Amino acid sequence: MNNLDSSFKLIKKKLHEAGLKLTPQRELTVEVLLEKEKDHLSAEEIYMLVKSKNTGIGLATVYRTLEILTDLEIINKLTFQDGIARYDLNLNDEKHQHHHLLCLKCGKIEEVKNDMLLEIEIEIEKEYQFTVKDHRLTFHGICRNCSAN
């Protein structure tokens, strides 16, 4: 079983545990999210890709599916400086999300997998008696491709 299959099964399981079915429309949306996992797509971009697979699906259906997947913490809704909500798979059940590098020239978003803020988080919890549930960090700069040009 490849990684795509195991991710698909995990999503199906999470939906089932929440009392929801993997309808054909949800299945197509999940399929697009898995295929384009590294792309941080907007709802409209996801809709266009889903619509290319099934012309009968509506934008409202895709939005509802994204909302359900966000509520179930299967995906994260991220908003960068362009104000457009983008979606990112969250299948590892980790306490924290990864961080992002955002190129200010081309808009490319790259993921940083290591959580380098864990020590700072522990200090914040001690110093302020504040229980941190999550943190998000985006570095704004110029990617290697744009720097080379």
Rank of each mutant, 00 (worst) to 15 (best):
23 T>H: 10
23 T>N: 02
24 P>I: 04
24 P>R: 03
24 P>S: 09
24 P>M: 01
25 Q>P: 01
25 Q>V: 15
25 Q>F: 13
25 Q>G: 12
26 R>K: 08
26 R>V: 05
26 R>L: 02
26 R>S: 09
27 E>K: 07
27 E>Q: 12
27 E>L: 04
28 L>H: 04
28 L>P: 09
28 L>D: 01
29 T>A: 13
29 T>P: 09
30 V>Y: 00
31 E>L: 12
31 E>W: 12
31 E>Y: 13
32 V>W: 02
33 L>S: 00
34 L>G: 08
34 L>R: 04
34 L>C: 04
34 L>H: 06
35 E>I: 11
35 E>H: 07
35 E>S: 13
35 E>K: 14
35 E>D: 13
35 E>T: 12
36 K>N: 14
36 K>C: 13
36 K>T: 04
36 K>Y: 15
37 E>F: 06
37 E>A: 13
38 K>N: 13
38 K>F: 05
38 K>P: 05
38 K>M: 03
39 D>F: 01
39 D>K: 07
39 D>H: 10
39 D>S: 12
39 D>I: 03
40 H>R: 06
40 H>S: 07
41 L>G: 04
41 L>M: 11
41 L>C: 00
41 L>D: 01
41 L>Q: 03
41 L>W: 02
41 L>K: 04
42 S>R: 02
42 S>Y: 06
42 S>P: 11
42 S>H: 07
42 S>E: 04
43 A>G: 10
43 A>H: 02
44 E>M: 11
44 E>Y: 13
45 E>V: 01
45 E>T: 03
45 E>M: 08
46 I>K: 01
47 Y>M: 08
47 Y>N: 01
47 Y>S: 00
47 Y>A: 06
47 Y>R: 00
47 Y>G: 08
48 M>W: 10
48 M>A: 14
48 M>D: 14
48 M>S: 15
48 M>T: 15
48 M>E: 15
50 V>K: 04
51 K>M: 11
51 K>P: 10
51 K>T: 11
51 K>F: 06
51 K>Q: 14
52 S>D: 15
52 S>F: 09
52 S>V: 12
53 K>G: 07
53 K>F: 07
53 K>W: 08
53 K>A: 11
53 K>Y: 06
54 N>S: 12
54 N>T: 07
54 N>M: 09
54 N>H: 11
54 N>W: 13
55 T>S: 12
55 T>C: 06
55 T>G: 14
55 T>K: 15
55 T>A: 14
56 G>K: 07
56 G>M: 03
56 G>H: 06
56 G>C: 06
57 I>T: 06
57 I>H: 06
57 I>R: 01
57 I>C: 10
58 G>M: 03
58 G>T: 09
58 G>N: 06
58 G>A: 08
59 L>V: 10
59 L>D: 10
60 A>S: 13
60 A>M: 02
60 A>C: 01
60 A>T: 08
60 A>Y: 09
61 T>F: 00
61 T>I: 05
62 V>N: 01
62 V>G: 04
62 V>M: 01
63 Y>M: 07
63 Y>W: 09
63 Y>R: 15
63 Y>L: 14
63 Y>E: 09
64 R>N: 15
64 R>W: 04
64 R>L: 09
64 R>D: 15
64 R>A: 11
65 T>L: 00
65 T>Y: 02
66 L>N: 00
66 L>Q: 02
